[in-house]
Amino acid sequence: MTKILSIKDLHVDVGETAIVNGLNLVIESGETHAIMGPNGSGKSTLAKTIAGHPDYKIRSGKIIYMDRDLSELSIEDRSNLGVFLGFQYPIEIPGLSNTAFLKAAINAKRKYQGLDDLSASDFLIDLKEKSQMVDIEQKFLSRGVNEGFSGGEKKRNEILQMLMLEPTLAILDETDSGLDIDSMKVVASGVNAFRNETTSSLIITHYERLLNYITPDYVHVFHNGAIIKTGDIQLAKDLEDRGYEWLTNP
């Protein structure tokens, strides 16, 4: 197994406020980790910090991805090296079609890797296959990015982007929020298709229900910007039954 992500004593501020306070986490290849926690515990801050959002400042600590210090890499280089962030609130970009966007993203990664652009036919074959996996109709792909998409369609579109970009580490920030049961099954099936022995996932969620379809290797409980307990899927079930209070306010 290879160490994919290693977070050491991480402290993150947003403006003057400390959000992440001494986080430690190691993710190895092939592993799926789930982070659960109440609102405001810092889960999304962690996701955005790994992706490189400029408003989230690392005060101290390290995020090492495949032996590289992420804080030294631009947002786009992190992506091109295989870090993918699935957004909690996917952004709408009217006027830029999903197809053009995906093609640009894939070719940016290929350029970074020293490869030629993907041929139009290979791109379209791949796009057709993967859009079917997440139940996105072809007509949606010619629309602006997430333009006029329902909540579920936006989340499925995030999973489509993940499948197309073939990252090494997928961070999915509350991908299950706002999904009906059918959409959740589709999203889970897309994530499961992505999982293999060389890839890793970090799934951030409020609820145990997504984990009924994606079985994590580890479940972490996040509170006040740090992990306060780690367990397996049984921990998620306990949280569903008992809430967070028995851990956050024992």
Partner: peptide
């Protein structure tokens, strides 16, 4: 929006152009 595009590997210049 710029952040979103960059997280998909698109550089600053191209993201602005888009």
């Amino acid at each position: 929006k710029l952040f979103y595009l960059k997280t998909r590997g698109i550089n600053e210049h191209d993201a602005k152009e888009f």
